[in-house]
Design a protein around this nucleic acid. Sequence first.
DNA 1: GTAAAAGTTGAAGTTAGCTTTAAGTCAAGC
DNA 2: GCTTGACTTAAAGCTAACTTCAACTTTTAC
Lengths: 140, 140
Amino acid sequence: MKIGELASRTGVKASAIRYYEKLSLVPVPYRAGGQRRYTDEVIYRVLLIRFARDMDFSLEEIKIFLSGLNDQAPVGKRWKKLAHLKIKQVDETVVRAKRLKSLLEHLLRCQCASLRQCVDRLSLSPRLRLMRNGAKERQQ
Amino acid sequence: MKIGELASRTGVKASAIRYYEKLSLVPVPYRAGGQRRYTDEVIYRVLLIRFARDMDFSLEEIKIFLSGLNDQAPVGKRWKKLAHLKIKQVDETVVRAKRLKSLLEHLLRCQCASLRQCVDRLSLSPRLRLMRNGAKERQQ
DNA sequence: GTAAAAGTTGAAGTTAGCTTTAAGTCAAGC
DNA sequence: GCTTGACTTAAAGCTAACTTCAACTTTTAC
């Protein structure tokens, strides 16, 4: 299969696939007359990459992820560590998402005249600090 | 309060605050001898911006968000639309997060010899397509 | 055989959300 | 009064994850 077909079958642009190849996320394929020819196997790889991307894995993380899945050897330490980290992050995401939802629902209901009043009423400001500490480190 | 104090009290760098000012996310403050002087009000604004950022609101969205909260008028249509959209997104995030978690937990347990075998065993490939369609539009 | 579609490359461009830099001005403590 | 640290600006730089471009070659369809 040529790169165009792989692209249309996965929904991932050819340029992105070439980019993944450069980063060693997909294997360097056999070539015919200079053009890439892929086996069906690669479809799974590309789909899995995209799935992980949608889950906000970085390409670096996905590289670890895929290398772990590919070895015959039992899944490596690096892989396990990343998986556990990601599970933790997922749990945090769910907690924060639910908090956001109830905040939005409050804001849709309430008739706070000013930002401050609303923030005060929610006693958001001490919470905000806590959330910020709990959130992914942003600066420094 | 000067920008440095606002920065340390919110945990947001002065450069970021100036950037927010340029984008009209925080009001243009009074100046003394060319230097910005802020009222306490602004702390709430900056904290709220950061909270929204942690929830993956874009600065554009936050602008709508804040403008809605600031008016004396009842929260505008644009605001409500965004809020409902965000609530929907949050629900989707929770669903996908849970799916990711069970996938990771499976992968930690299973001993699939190859990527394909593992993906097949999970019947992930038809799901992947569905997820991709359901996920935030990525390209085009 | 020929035209159009699809493939190739490296390099430059894009976006968001900042940070850093350079070259100054202002403020605070001694 | 002087030094040090905080502040000012506009412009350039940074990162991730790609996309686009230009100039070319290969494949496919007729």
